[in-house]
Structures are given as structure tokens and as C-alpha cells.
Simulated assay, not measured.
Amino acid sequence: MKIKRRKKLTINGLSKGGKISVYIGMILMSIIALFPLVWVVISSFKGDPLAEPGFALPSKLVFDGYISVFKDMNILRYFGNSIIVSLTSVVLSITMISLSAYVVARTEFKGKGIVTALLLSTMFIPATAMTFPVYNLVNNMGIHNKHSGLIFIYTCSGIAVSFFIIKNYFATIPKEIEEAAFIDGCNFFQTFTMIIFPIARPGIMTAAVLAFMNNWNEYYWSSMVLIDKEKLTVPALLSQFTTSFSTNYNGLFSAIVVIVIPPIILFCCCSKYFVEALSGGAVKG
């Protein structure tokens, strides 16, 4: 069986005017996306961002915020907390979602539509609506103020988006590949781990990266579940710069810059998986 990759989407088929419009649109979107980040970076080098607002360059470069973040607040400890919580929850959630998405996408069973609808319906439930039952459940399980409690919440959060991405990618893989694997003696689990999983890696990695960035940037549950300061994740740490009487904007902006660096690096390293997943880069026979 001849296997070939689908052609990637390009703009070579557009007219000159169409290409110019596309480039102008991409430039505008880039400016809009980078606007707040550039503003925060510039403000982090100002001694008093309120005295020098906007995009005005600082009259004097001030590194006190960065020194305070690494030396006084020991942000590396909170980085470790975020990495442990985010990675563990991503591994657990993506493993479960990949298996369930594979069954839904590749097999026929009674109630398949209901199962799919139930999983996707979680996309429309806001986190605030689930605050009391989830918080009460975490307390009853005895995992309040523990990283395991946050991991439990993150593992069960964002199921709909990851399921949608992975299921749709599984659906693009020809069934002939599975049939050939069964003929060669592979069982259902071996077919998934040895054949389907490597082919669907772009879709699975896309869902994993999106889940990681969502967990890394999550503030609502991290500030509610974790109480002890040494257990906080980096988003919850930002509240330490604000008191009832004042806000340390220089330290706050410096911490924000440090916090957003890991997701940016992760996205740059895994951007090829996004391209393959969004362009339908599976195989066809």
C-alpha cells in the first residue's frame, strides 16, 4: 500500500493582491498579539512603570525586579511546582483522552453519539459554575492544599478540546492500516501503541502542548486549592506583588516576563506539530 503525506497548505496559488492581503493580515495579527507582551517587557525595566507609562523607553534600565524575583522570591522553586503539576496532569489527561478518542473514532458501539456529546459538552461549562462541587470533592478526598489536588483538577479540565483535536486526527487515518496490523497479528492495544500513536503524534502533541500551556497559565484553581506559599505555582505567585495598600509593578512585570518564557520556548520547539496537525498531516492510502 502506497502511503504519502497530504500536501501542506500554501499561499502560492494566490494572486499578487491576495498574497499582499494575507501578509498584511498576518502582520496586523502579529502586532495585536505582541502588543501586550512588548509593553510588559518594556515596563519591567522601568523603576516606576506608573511614572513612565505606555511604550516610552525607560529613562534608566532597572533590574531590581528581576533580581528580586530570582533572589528574594526564589521563583525557581515555584517553577518546579508548576512543572510538576503541569507535566503530570498533561501525561495523565492525554493518555486517558487518547485511548478514549481512539475508541470513539475507530470503533462502532451503542451510545457512541451520546458519549461524544457528553465529552464535548464539558467545553461549555465555565470553571466558576463548578467551583463548589469540585472544591467540596477535593476537600472530601483530603487533597486540599496539595499538588495532587491541583493535578486532579487539571487532569479533568480541558477534556473537550483535547478530545476534539485527537479524535479528529484519528479519524483521518485510513482503516486499512489497522486492518493490515490485525492481519500481522497485532491486538487492539498493540495496534494503537505501535501503529496509530506514531502516526497521530502531531495531533496528540498539539493537544498536549495546549493542555500544558493552559495548566501553566491557570490561576483560578491554583490560587484556591493551594494555600501554603511554598506550594504555589507561578501564576498564583503573582498575587504576592499586590497588597491592600500598594502594588509592586516593577516586580510584577518582571515576574510576568519570566513566567511567559517557558511556554514560548515550548511552543517554538513544538510548532511543527501544530503545522502538521492543523494542515491535516496524517496519511492517506
Rank of each mutant, 00 (worst) to 15 (best):
H144S: 15
D48Q: 15
T95Y: 06
G47Y: 13
G18E: 07
I125T: 02
V138M: 14
A101Q: 00
A117G: 01
I94Q: 05
V138S: 07
L118C: 04
K19T: 04
L28N: 06
N140H: 15
T131C: 04
P126W: 10
V22S: 09
K71D: 14
I32K: 11
T107M: 12
L92V: 01
A105H: 00
I75F: 08
L92W: 01
L61Q: 13
A127E: 09
I83N: 02
K110T: 05
G111E: 05
I67Y: 12
I75G: 00
T122K: 07
G80W: 12
K46W: 06
L37F: 13
I143C: 13
L61F: 05
I143Q: 13
A129I: 10
S68Q: 15
T95G: 02
N139E: 15
N74H: 14
S100D: 02
H147V: 05
I84Q: 08
K110V: 02
K46P: 05
S100A: 05
M73V: 11
V134C: 05
V91K: 00
Y66S: 02
K146W: 15
G149W: 12
G142S: 08
R106C: 00
P36C: 07
S43N: 03
K110A: 06
I84C: 05
G113W: 05
R106G: 01
G111M: 03
L61D: 12
I27S: 09
N145Y: 12
S93W: 01
Y23M: 09
K60W: 10
D64Q: 14
G149Y: 10
I125A: 00
L50E: 09
K112R: 09
R77H: 07
I94G: 03
G149D: 10
A56M: 14
D72H: 15
A51P: 09
I20F: 13
F70N: 04
I143D: 11
V138D: 10
I75H: 07
T107K: 10
V138I: 09
M73T: 08
I143V: 12
N145A: 11
Y78P: 03
V90G: 02
S59Y: 13
E52S: 10
S121D: 01
F45S: 00
L50P: 08
A117D: 06
Y66N: 05
S148P: 08
N145M: 12
S59R: 14
I84E: 03
G65F: 07
N74F: 09
D48F: 13
I24Y: 10
F45N: 01
F70L: 06
G113S: 04
S82V: 04
Y66M: 08
I114V: 05
T128D: 13
G47K: 15
T107I: 04
K60F: 13
N74I: 12
S93Y: 04
N145K: 15
S89M: 02
F132T: 14
F35L: 07
S68C: 09
N139V: 13
F45V: 04
S86R: 09
S98Q: 00
L37H: 09
A127Y: 07
L34N: 10
